Computed example of a mutant assay.
Amino acid sequence: MPGTPARNLLEHARNIVVEGPIGVGKTSLARRLAEHLGQSKECQLLLEQPELNPFLTRFYQERSRYALQTQLFFLFQRQDQLRDLAQPDIFRQTVVSDFLFEKDPIFARLTLAEDEYKLYRQIYDTLAPQVVSPDLVIYLQASPENLIARVKKRGLDMERRIGDVYLTQLAESYSRFFYGYNAAPVMIVNSDRLNFVDQDRDFHLLLERLAAMRGHREYFNRGE
């Protein structure tokens, strides 16, 4: 079991990841966190680029036919984006990203047929050792009802065909994944009643909780 994080982990972490299912607000929080940290040190924002995946729109239209191509593109894209983090002598600045490499199989397990998943897993297991673990993970949770409402509200064309059942399954799969995740310190945040983009108070409350984080796994709920 990994040891207790260093004092003020938020300030000392070099590789920070914001994660969570579709619609939970991870990209918005990653942007604001990178902007905040960039006021005192060099900080890079590293975001997923789903718009570059040529199979994604077709996947939402015909899921079974394009699932493997879509998933493998994302797998190689994420590995390529994270490659430099394995070379600390070259890459010294703080990085805030909105994806964790280890979460990729969550989506693969939901979308691929059994034989496709076995092939995917062989490729994933070859690439995974090349990717370094983050220093801090902020895992955003939300109820399936809120995820569904948020996805519909933002109205992205490529997400219009995402079903409510899929979003519910995805939220449940994330919960199971992070229940057993211990590769890095994790702050689990219930975001149902939090708005990190529009509410400064919510964002600063999260910063305070992260700065005070001492355990390897802690929880932040707006009702606390």
Rank of each mutant, 00 (worst) to 15 (best):
R83A: 13
A34N: 00
R32M: 10
P21A: 15
R63K: 15
Q77F: 10
K41Q: 13
G38I: 03
F76C: 14
P21N: 15
F73H: 02
F55C: 09
V17P: 01
A34E: 00
R63W: 06
R58M: 12
T27F: 06
L45S: 08
H36E: 15
Y66C: 09
F73I: 00
L47A: 08
T70W: 02
Q49N: 05
L72G: 01
N53Y: 14
P54Y: 11
Q77D: 15
E42Q: 12
Y60C: 05
Q81N: 09
T27M: 09
E51L: 08
Q49V: 03
P21C: 10
L72C: 11
R58Y: 08
L33R: 04
R58K: 13
A13L: 09
Y66P: 06
N15F: 14
Q69D: 15
K26P: 01
S64M: 09
A13I: 05
R58A: 15
I22R: 01
F73N: 00
P50G: 05
Q81R: 11
V17K: 03
R31L: 07
E48G: 01
G20D: 02
D80W: 09
E62H: 13
V17D: 01
L72H: 01
L68Y: 12
L52Q: 14
L37Y: 02
L37T: 02
A13P: 04
H36M: 04
S28A: 13
G23S: 06
P21Q: 07
L45F: 11
T57Y: 04
Q49T: 08
R58T: 13
V24C: 15
R63A: 15
T27D: 10
L72F: 08
K41R: 15
P54H: 10
L75H: 12
R31N: 08
T27N: 07
F55V: 08
H36I: 09
H36N: 05
S40N: 09
L45Q: 06
A67V: 08
R31C: 06
L29R: 00
F59C: 00
L47W: 13
P50H: 10
Q39R: 15
L47N: 04
E62Y: 13
L82V: 02
S28W: 06
E19S: 03
L47D: 04
T70M: 07
G25R: 05
F59S: 00
E35H: 13
Q44T: 11
F55G: 09
R78W: 08
L37A: 06
Q69R: 04
R83S: 13
